[in-house]
């Protein structure tokens, strides 16, 4: 998928991705010549089609987790299907979790929680963020395209 600024005959570049939380996706593209910005808005079915391929519009920003699509998309997963081993999570980083961030994490289904925790920890580590707060989680969710996590 590419966007062309017809006036400038110039290929637009990906700028930003947003997930409003209603199953839709917004991705903005900017013309490097004239600065014009357009947004591509996809409906829930189109958004799902892209995520069902295990790819991310705008590119991958953290490495793909094992069984990532299965864990984020299966609705009938067992509570205790995975043991994510707490020792590995955020290993080697000094990232900590605020109390409200942990509370929010507790609301994530067990089937995917360990993986989500690792993704946020990787994200924070990459950006040198010392404490994961709900605000950090919101930004990460959008930036990483973690619909439904």
């Amino acid at each position: 998928m590419k966007f062309l600024c017809v006036d400038c005959d110039s290929q637009m570049s990906f700028a930003e991705r947003q997930l409003p939380g209603d199953g839709t996706l917004a991705a903005t593209f900017k013309c490097p010549k004239c600065g014009r910005v357009v947004a591509m808005l996809t409906n829930p079915m189109e958004t799902q089609l892209v995520s069902s391929l295990g790819v991310e519009i705008g590119g991958r920003t953290v490495p793909e987790q094992p069984l990532q699509t299965i864990r984020s998309a299966v609705a009938t997963g067992r509570e205790d299907a995975f043991d994510d081993g707490s020792r590995e999570q955020g290993a080697g980083s000094r990232t900590s979790w605020s109390a409200d961030a942990l509370q929010r994490l507790d609301r994530v289904p067990n089937f995917v929680r360990g993986m989500v925790k690792r993704i946020y920890a990787d994200y924070a580590k990459e950006r040198g963020i010392a404490e994961i707060t709900p605000a950090v989680m919101d930004t990460a969710r959008s930036e990483l395209g973690l619909e439904g996590m």
């Binding site: 199953g23 829930p44 079915m45 799902q48 089609l49 069902s52 391929l53 699509t69 299965i70 984020s72 998309a73 299966v74 609705a75 009938t76 997963g77 067992r78 509570e79 299907a81 089937f111 439904g148």
Partner: peptide, 24 residues
Amino acid sequence: LLEDGAPLAFRGPSAESFVWRGAM
């Protein structure tokens, strides 16, 4: 990975799920 006796079901828009289910 599935709950006992549960079918494999995915989160996502139920309308036109045939469009993305195969890819999933």
